[in-house]
Amino acid sequence: MFEVSFLFGQFLGGLTTAMFLFLIASGLSLVFGVMRVLNFAHGSFFMIGAYLAWQAVQWLAPALHSFWLAALAAALGVALLGGLIERLLLRHIYGREELYQLLLTYALVLILGDAAKIIWGTQQLSVSRPPMLAGGFQVLGATLPTYNLFIMLTGVAIAVAGWFVLTRSPAGRMVRAAALDREMLGALGANVGALYTGMFVASSFLAGLSGALVTPIQSIVPGMDVEVIVEAFIVVVIGGLGSFWGTFWGSVIYGQVLSFGILILPGFSLFSVFALMAVILIVRPWGLFGRPLR
């Protein structure tokens, strides 16, 4: 029915989507695992990262044409923003009902979304691909842009680095302990406040970085925040809220379902991913790779 090269192309496309989503969703998932806050504003951080990257490229352009420097600056900028938000706002609602937590982060979605419009306007913006990754090459008859390969490798690299930090560093062990059992964290005498801030900053950094990295292949438009946050929700629900590897595999599954869902049910690939999310919540609310929360 379909040629191998075509199917392989779909597969690669799905994998690229997956690695992007992993970059975004891993931070969302870790924040939920540690703080039990479902952060709607995570998509806004992603969007701000994209705008900041564009801005940095404009500023740097004549002197120093460096996409990489711009991306790093954008990620750091978003990390700073995340840290401020955690210290000034989120900190005060950890004990409150989840309704108030959801609404606080939603308020941030509204404010950040409009702030971006005020600063950068509503027209589409774009960033050109870094020259060294401009080309593409053939794999099994399918064309793979070099930039997409770079994204896949970055995703894998972040996954490995994240796993390394989580298992090998003391802070990582605290994060995992908190994700499994919150009381254990208090019992360990951990400095919970610093851990939360650090976690949120790291998560914002990842969101900002993925926003910056997406700019060469996707134009920057208002509304990309609310679109991406729903996709990230689907990914973390599939893998299991709070589970790091779950988020990784959740992204891979999501990417492939979306990619091949278009082939099987062209009109309903959107439907199929939400249906997948619903089915998983019904059958295993803690996700395919997560554990029931305590």
Binding site: L89, H92, I93, Y100, L103, L104, Y106, A107, L108, V109, L110, I111, G113, D114, A115, K117, I118
Partner: peptide
């Protein structure tokens, strides 16, 4: 920029 105002109202409301 109505959403901006709404978000600010919401923050006030929550805190």
């Amino acid at each position: 920029y109505w959403p901006f105002v709404l978000g600010t109202i919401l923050l006030l409301l929550l805190f």
